[in-house]
Design a protein around this nucleic acid. Sequence first.
DNA 1: AAATAGGATTGATATAGATCAAGAGGGGGG
DNA 2: CCCCCCTCTTGATCTATATCAATCCTATTT
Lengths: 193, 193
Amino acid sequence: MFEILFEHINRKISLQEAEMEQLKTFFIPKKYRRKQYVLQQGDPCKYIVFVEKGMLRSYQVDDKGNEHIVQFAPEGWWISDSYSFLTGTPASYDIDVLEEAEVLLITQPAMEEMLQAIPAMERYMRILMQNSLISMQRRIACTLTTQAEERYLGFIAENPHIGQRVPQHMLASFLGMTPETLSRVRKQLLKKS
Amino acid sequence: MFEILFEHINRKISLQEAEMEQLKTFFIPKKYRRKQYVLQQGDPCKYIVFVEKGMLRSYQVDDKGNEHIVQFAPEGWWISDSYSFLTGTPASYDIDVLEEAEVLLITQPAMEEMLQAIPAMERYMRILMQNSLISMQRRIACTLTTQAEERYLGFIAENPHIGQRVPQHMLASFLGMTPETLSRVRKQLLKKS
DNA sequence: AAATAGGATTGATATAGATCAAGAGGGGGG
DNA sequence: CCCCCCTCTTGATCTATATCAATCCTATTT
């Protein structure tokens, strides 16, 4: 159950056997089936979630009922409403399950304890945040500068594994366009090749 | 020269006098005048910059020569091309000076040394990254879900200090719209009130 | 005071992408 | 085998925002 997490951690820092054993105690393993909610908008986000298997997504529902996908989280990714988790305010995202999933949950207090007990994890979290930040920045730069077709191409180039696995209309939402537009973009691309 | 930085750090972690003294040794203080480049696209980003006074901005120039502002950094903010800084690859942003500035620079090696010497800074950096990440996420959610007027209102509500200080066309660029559009948005808003 | 330059505004037009609406597969469950 | 649900596609419009172009304003320089 902890394989992917350990692999992920060991790629960034090195932990001793004992620390790895101890680490396990801070997490709650859990399984979710397709379409199950992990977090609902309005509830406080009690956990940060690490995905061992399957795929989750976070999304926002606007006043017109449209879903706007914020993040896909396949195995090896973390997901949460960081703001809600940190401040205890009601979450503004929903998180649910796209593919039957096995995850590891950690609460705010457990996280604090863990960082006290295993200081190297402070470094891991810092690197993790740094990397997420970088990819967010690139995503922003991308939405500011490019248009539909280029954005789509960029995404599938960088995330081939995700592109295959999610329904097209969710991809469209993630990319900030309608399903119709994405469909037309893809048709254009087929013609070209 | 270190007042703002220390204040910023002490709001998140607590350092002893000795550590604060030691901290200073890792930074290079520097002054910049208006319009001066701190980083040019194509060069590797050697420093992360903390702004003590004045204001910097990072931006990308597209193929048509249009500037797309990625970040404003007034006093108390960090700025860099994190990706370039981390990997040593050529920067994809320019960073320059909007208001005559006093800054603190830290190099990659100095940063590593610092984190070794003062482990509490690992925590500070983690929290810093976390907070930036949160605001990035909100910005993305915002560009995905809202349109021009709402985006403008959101920005000035959250960053009144910045809104006043930068030329309107840069604000427009940051918000992902043209100067003309922002001008019209503001005109609309005036009428309403 | 004239000249210059960097913003901001305003109007006319163009366009990428949204929205609305209808159909077309294509599985799985009864 | 048929029906229902879900997803994707396609076509016809609509709209927010971009683009192009001209002025205007204000501050600074000469």
